[in-house]
């Protein structure tokens, strides 16, 4: 099973999202948070060393998918990957998926035993999921009026 690492500027978001994604996937997914800074957990920021630890905690030969929020989260994640030996780095991937929706979808697909690139593709597709069906304004006017 691939591992998942959730990188956020906020420790609360990363930790909470791990709980949410794991529960949505029915438990048992290898998922680790990397939010905030090592010594100042509730200061907003990202920490390459913390991300590296998270990768190692969920590492297997199947690889690790990293989901990130924005800005320096990407740079810190890239830096964490550079600390890994080549053979490990080549089995890690930083996803373009939205963090929250992507993490939930990724957890579901990882739990099904899907491969790294397939899990990532599903997570990235979460961008296209619609939450509500909007009735176009002109149609609504006619219905109500």
């Amino acid at each position: 099973m691939i591992g998942l690492v959730l990188v956020s500027h906020s420790r609360l978001i990363a930790d909470g999202l791990c709980q949410l994604a794991d529960q949505m996937a029915g438990g048992g997914v290898k998922i680790a948070p990397a939010g905030g800074l090592t010594d100042d957990p509730y200061t907003l920021g990202t920490d390459a060393a913390l991300i590296l630890e998270a990768i190692e905690s969920v590492w297997s030969e199947d690889g690790v998918l990293l989901l990130v929020d924005m800005g320096s989260a990407v740079m810190s994640a890239e830096m964490a990957l550079e600390f890994l030996p080549d053979e490990q780095r080549n089995r890690c991937l930083i996803s373009n998926a939205p963090l929250v929706e992507g993490a939930i979808v990724a957890a579901l697909h990882a739990g099904m035993g899907n491969r790294l690139h397939d899990v990532n593709a599903a997570a990235e597709d979460a961008l296209n999921a619609r939450k509500v069906e909007r009735v176009p304004e002109n149609v609504k006017d006619k219905t109500c009026g």
Binding site: H9, L37, T38, D39, D40, T43, L44, G45, T46, D47, A48, A49, L50, G71, S72, M75, S76, E78, M79
Partner: peptide, 14 residues
Amino acid sequence: ISAVGGAAGPLYGT
């Protein structure tokens, strides 16, 4: 890289 937090962390770190 562990203490700055913002983009400056990975940039100065690198």
